[in-house]
Amino acid sequence: MTPAYPEVKPSHVAGVVKVEMSLFNSREEIQWYQIELFDLNWTNIPFASSYRIINIGYKERKSFDVYIRKADMDEAVYLCTTSKVRKSSKSRTLISSRICSRLDGEPA
């Protein structure tokens, strides 16, 4: 997921800002990713987006906007996408991957 340090922009809604993100699926076995927003202690923070869970094919890229209340921006730190794994029919370990950008960092 990019950018690592997204720029926070004003949105068309008063009191709400937006960040523009892009997600690339590099895992052939994964088709779904969940968007999450956390504070520094990994506590969930509310947000709005066209997608909560994105369906994205292997080696496809999808862009999405995340809308956050200005009042929450002091707390919002990590904007993450987490892969959703399918149930397996073999005794095994499944790998859930999570990529997190920082909203309080320096833009790249």
Binding site: A4, Y5, Y78, C80, V85, K87, S88, S89, K90, S91, R92, T93, L94, I95, S96, S97, R98, I99, C100, S101, R102, G105
Partner: peptide, 13 residues
């Protein structure tokens, strides 16, 4: 069948 999750995270500093 037993499955368990390994969580691999890449977190921007």
């Amino acid at each position: 069948v037993y499955t368990a999750l390994v969580q691999a995270s890449c977190v921007a500093k």
